[in-house]
């Protein structure tokens, strides 16, 4: 079964050897809604430390559903999910080891950028002096140093997303989950955010699970791509991307990049034909 391939160690494409420790393990998870809609057929997925994993697929393939299950926002109908070997939902402490970025920035409109980014620390009851330092560091990392006192509506869409990412990074998480974070941005901003995201991932030795429906974005960013198909939502392939870092426009223009994009697009097309047949 294709989904089981996610657990096969030879598929692993981590940046460095020795980073094989599983952060998240999902075993045979499914999700069926109360209406009877099957959003996800059994999926098994392991997110290993240090990898940039992308869930790629067309709309309705259950990639957001799967990410929400991994985040603990939603409970699987069947199967189990573990974070660091413990079942989800986790104890309070572990919640801060995973950061989440949603499709929209979901900032509090009444709070300044500083207070928005500090929210996870405030909710955890961290002392103000300590959390202010962490907020400054997170804002500097996403390039929002000068905007701590601004309100979200005074920022552009890209800057709001940066604030949202700063909020996810402020607790110093090991794993960051991003659900189509740059989908609403124009292509120029998106390319820039992609490059910066890759830099943050490399600099901070983060582990990232990323959801997108853009094949080019997936190939450009990932160390491993889990390809999904719709109706019913399922995993159809688990593909490593072996290109070296840093990747820039040279990688985007390379034959290897194009070949991988074409291969992935054919994979998705075949799966959807099969699904209809």
């Amino acid at each position: 079964m294709a989904a089981e391939g996610a657990l096969a160690p030879q598929r692993e494409a981590g940046r460095e050897p020795g980073e094989r420790n599983a952060i998240v393990v999902a075993r045979g998870v499914t999700r069926t809604y109360a209406s009877g809609t099957r959003a996800l057929d059994p999926v098994s997925l392991t997110i290993r430390e240090g990898e940039f994993l992308t869930l790629l697929g067309p709309s309705g393939c259950g990639k957001t559903t799967l990410l929400n299950l991994v985040a603990g926002l939603d409970a699987p109908t069947e199967g189990t999910i573990e974070w660091w070997g413990a079942p989800v939902p986790p104890a309070t402490g572990d919640a801060h080891r995973i950061g989440c970025v949603f499709q929209s920035p979901t900032l509090m409109p009444w709070a300044r950028v500083r207070a928005n980014v500090r929210l996870p620390l405030d909710l955890a009851g961290a002392p103000r002096a300590q959390s202010d330092a962490a907020v400054d560091a997170a804002l500097a990392r996403v390039g929002l140093d000068g905007f701590a006192g601004a309100f979200p509506r005074e920022l552009s869409g890209g800057m709001r997303m940066r604030a949202s990412i700063a909020r996810a990074l402020v607790t110093g998480p090991s794993l960051v989950l991003l659900d189509e974070p740059f989908g609403a941005l124009d292509e120029f901003s998106r390319h820039r955010m992609d490059d910066e995201l890759a830099a943050w991932w490399r600099d901070a030795s983060l582990t990232i699970a990323f959801v997108t429906h853009s094949i080019a974005e997936a190939v450009y960013l990932s160390t491993r791509i889990v390809v999904m198909a719709a109706r019913p939502g399922r995993v159809i392939a688990d593909v490593p991307v072996d290109a070296p870092w840093p990747r820039g426009n040279a990688f985007r223009a390379s034959p290897a990049f194009a070949a991988q994009c074409v291969a992935l697009s054919e994979l998705v097309a075949r799966a959807s034909e099969g699904g209809h047949g």
């Binding site: 603990g72 309070t92 919640a95 989440c100 949603f102 979901t106 909710l123």
Partner: peptide, 8 residues
């Protein structure tokens, strides 16, 4: 969702 994730 965010508040729930962060155990508010």
């Amino acid at each position: 969702d965010l508040f729930r994730l962060m155990h508010a």
